[in-house]
């Protein structure tokens, strides 16, 4: 118990370090919030006006903005977590050699992983909370279940945070990250974000259902529109499992990579 407290304290020192760094770059933090909002206004509302009255999900008419908003929230939870836990972690580990310095202190690789992950979650969580407020103000949340979209977004962050860290331990150069960015982009466009996947051919639907962002989008959409059913538990379990697998792999490999 006592050692767990000590470990948490050391992990929080890493969190603090990131806070000190970003205090100097407030716009970099703030700017991350705007991207999903801009997409919401452009595609959700702008294009949404072109489909008003004709947009349907499972045969039921629905406001397009209502459909797109939770997807943008899920996307921003994904990219926020990936930026911190995959891209920034990779840079700090491989190029800056930052962790080599921290490891000379009582901090261990696992505490570094937890510190970075908690920072990624805090950052992503702040974006999600702000986005949820925007949605509420714009009347894009139709039920009190929407409050649960915040923990839902944190779960997405945890899943992608774990996945991102695991990926960061395998990649070798920034060029490899082009593939990661590419895959994230494809997920962003096709995870039932802008159109229901029922439009896709069967094989593509199947493929989308295997990928994680789809489950995040469906989870948040169910919550913000109040269409809550057992299916949501399935999405949450998928994300939790991904988080567990990612974090297990990441913590094993971080130790190996950092303590040679």
């Amino acid at each position: 118990m006592l050692t767990m407290v000590a470990q948490a304290k050391r992990a929080s020192a890493l969190f603090e370090r990131n806070v000190v760094v970003y205090k100097r770059l407030p716009w970099n933090i703030v700017s991350g919030f705007f991207e999903p909002v801009l997409y919401l206004f452009s595609i959700g509302i702008g294009v949404g006006a072109l489909v008003s009255g004709t947009f349907t999900v499972d045969g039921e008419p629905m406001s397009y903005a209502l459909f797109v908003a939770p997807a943008m929230m899920a996307q921003s939870a994904m990219s926020g977590a990936m930026i911190e836990s995959a891209f920034n972690l990779f840079g700090k580990m491989r190029y800056q050699k930052l962790y080599d310095a921290f490891l000379a202190t009582p901090v261990g690789p696992n505490e570094i992983a937890w510190g970075e992950l908690s920072f990624a979650l805090a950052r992503g969580g702040a974006y999600s909370a702000a986005f949820l407020v925007v949605m509420a103000v714009m009347d894009l949340t139709t039920s009190w279940w929407a409050v649960l979209a915040l923990p839902g977004a944190l779960l997405i962050g945890l899943a992608f945070g774990g996945l991102g860290m695991a990926i960061a331990t395998f990649l070798r150069s920034w060029q490899d990250f082009d593939y990661v960015t590419g895959i994230m982009y494809v997920m962003f466009l096709f995870s039932g974000t802008f159109a229901p996947i029922a439009l896709f051919p069967a094989w593509a639907q199947w493929l989308v259902q295997v990928t994680p962002l789809y489950h995040g989008v469906e989870l948040l959409r169910g919550l913000t529109t109040g269409q809550v059913g057992p299916g949501l538990i399935g999405h949450a379990v998928y994300l939790a499992a991904l988080a567990a697998i990612g974090l297990t792999i990441a913590s094993r490999r971080m130790g190996k990579l950092l303590l040679k």
């Binding site: 050391r10 890493l14 202190t105």
Partner: peptide, 11 residues
């Protein structure tokens, strides 16, 4: 900050 932040790792 290099010193103060580092110190925090030692509690």
């Amino acid at each position: 900050e290099n010193l103060t932040v580092y110190a925090r790792f030692f509690g």
